[in-house]
Amino acid sequence: MSKLWNFLAMVWYQLTFKPQPLPDNIRLDGLTAIVTGANVGLGFEAAKELASHGLSKLILAVRDLSKGEAAKAEISREAPECEILVWKLDQESWESMVTFSRRVSIELDRLDIVLLNAGLKRLEFTQSPTGHEAHIQINHLGTALLSLLLVEPLRRTARQTGKPSRMTITASSVAFAAPVQDILEPKGGKGIIPWLDNPGSFIPGDSRYSLSKLLDVLWTRALAARLDPTDIILNTLNPGYCKSAFHRVDATAEWASSFLAWSSAEGGYHLTDAVVRHPDSHGEYLSEQRIRPVPRIASSAKGKEVQTKLWDETIALFKAECPDANIDEFTRGE
């Protein structure tokens, strides 16, 4: 019943809500932003909108540099005064993420906005080069590690400017339909991540993508509880169902987009809205460009236990597999 209700709710807001761009009077002059997954789709549209509001410097964090350069050229035509840099970032490589974060610390004199948008959707089990299931590696682990690695430059800027920096993680309303049993009672006795890395846990279709987006919500809440919102406002959001290459692996989703989907630009409006507006949204989930309730599992007592377990497992994994990451602040007492 809950899956049907969530589906009907999604159809309702897709058909009745009209996403709005940032108001013209919002200016980002002098600010520096990073957008991951910025060469295509919602990330590209969000990066373009940020640049059009006077952003001083924009880092397009992309896996494919040539595609990043093409995105830069297009954004530059609309926002010629914004300095746009294309930096390599591969969320399937610990080394790439650590190198990226060190580059941020060395080459940027400030960092005001981070939009962690990179992700993937697949319908079959795929293993990342790190050995983890691809959704778990890219959508959860890669996003989580970057969120930790970029805390210090964001915090440093906030203390220099006297106003909080911003970080947003792209989630999705599909988190409400995630198969929660896989994280409530993971099989094998080794924990949530080891179970999700097991091919036997994978059900063909989009359920693993949905679950990875629930993990994004849980991670956002766990990290937000450890951050001071006067330094960094961290939130997560649902960008809605949008027409983009992201769903190219899913024929059903592609077909349904003809009737329900917003444009990529309208999806991008949700991203920029979350990362620029809503100063009261620390640790919150936004949908339809406003703060909304999180999935029930995330707010339940059992869900809070899962959130703690996910945090502990993820931090322990980073310590073991990515010892070069500078996340000591988050490992004390672990």
Rank of each mutant, 00 (worst) to 15 (best):
T36I: 09
L58R: 13
L123A: 11
R296Q: 10
P194A: 13
I136T: 14
T99Y: 01
I84V: 08
S147L: 05
E288R: 13
W5D: 05
A73I: 07
L123M: 12
L58S: 12
R226G: 00
I297S: 06
V217S: 04
E107A: 05
L115H: 07
Q127C: 12
E152N: 10
D24T: 15
L115W: 05
W94N: 04
L123G: 09
D216H: 03
Y209F: 11
V306R: 04
Q181S: 13
T230I: 10
C322I: 01
E45T: 10
R77Y: 03
N6Y: 14
V275M: 09
I138Q: 00
H140D: 04
D228G: 00
D216W: 01
E124T: 15
S128A: 13
A158N: 03
L50I: 03
L31G: 05
I291S: 07
K121H: 14
I26C: 13
P23I: 05
S96I: 06
A47V: 01
R27I: 08
V174E: 10
K163Y: 11
S105D: 15
W311S: 00
D250I: 00
L111P: 05
H135G: 09
R292F: 02
T230Q: 13
A38S: 15
F7V: 14
T331D: 00
P279Y: 08
H278E: 08
R290H: 14
V40L: 11
